[in-house]
């Protein structure tokens, strides 16, 4: 199997009463856009943080491109967190310099092109930009890398529908076909059109990992409708 990410028996427990991710095993292939779906508190962000080395697993292992999470995998994983992680004091062009210095796979030309298409000035300071524009800048930076794995945590939350369309277009137009994109979101209806596979999580457990086509064929529903059925309150 053409496995890009191999997760085996992954568990994260903050204490004995709070297990955020419980014994998850799965293999993510290359060349797919995968939706990581689940209600609040289902462990999506915890799983994403462990993929990026921001949290250490309590048990189990993650291998990306055959290597355990560390310096080498960070060079090949492009991560968009669910918050603004860029310093407000920096200019956009300074952040481009930063990415160009640390990520060999970063294409400055591509980033500048996308910024220009949105009319974002490289001399603009981050703290002068609107929330939506900051999110777009972050997405542009992340998608301007030729990474093996793109991990996008809630990339379309909190932005207007026009911005959502732009974000989805950016993801589709810029990801490398040999790489995979893992997108965590609540807004399944908006993103379903671009997904190849879906992962459903609940209470830290893996509920389902299958292709979008399989969901439609087997259950005769869209992923959004099936998600609402599975996670009905």
């Amino acid at each position: 199997m053409n496995g890009l990410v191999e997760i085996l028996g992954l568990t994260k427990a903050y204490d004995e009463h709070h297990v955020a991710v419980s014994n998850i095993s799965l293999t993510l292939p290359r060349g797919k856009i995968i939706g990581l779906l689940g209600p609040n508190g289902s462990g999506k962000t915890t799983l994403i943080k462990m993929l990026n080395g921001l949290l250490m697993p309590t048990a189990g292992s993650i291998r990306i491109g055959g290597k355990p999470v560390g310096v080498e995998t960070k060079a090949h994983v492009s991560y968009l967190p669910d918050r603004t992680y860029l310093s407000g004091n920096k200019k956009v062009k300074q952040i481009l310099d930063y990415f160009a210095d640390f990520y060999k796979d970063f294409s400055r030309e591509r980033a500048v092109g996308m910024l220009q298409s949105l009319g974002i000035e490289p001399d603009a300071r981050m703290n002068t930009l609107s929330k939506g524009t900051k999110e777009k800048v972050q997405l542009i930076l992340v998608m301007s890398r030729q990474a093996d794995l793109y991990v996008l945590d809630e990339p379309i939350a909190g932005v207007d529908p026009a911005a959502r369309d732009y974000i989805l277009r950016t993801i589709l137009n810029n990801y490398n076909p040999n790489s995979s994109v893992l997108i965590s979101t609540h807004l399944i209806g908006d993103i379903e059109q671009v997904l190849d596979e879906v992962i459903f999580m609940r209470y830290g457990h893996l509920v389902l990992y299958t292709s979008v086509d399989n969901v439609r064929e087997k259950h005769g529903k869209s992923v959004d409708a099936y998600f609402r059925e599975v996670f009905a309150c």
Partner: peptide, 17 residues
């Protein structure tokens, strides 16, 4: 700020030890 707040998400995902 750069290690343990939001900016830490960038610091700790750089390909450095």
């Amino acid at each position: 700020r750069t290690m343990y707040t939001d900016e830490g998400y960038l610091t700790h995902t750089l390909p450095v030890t």
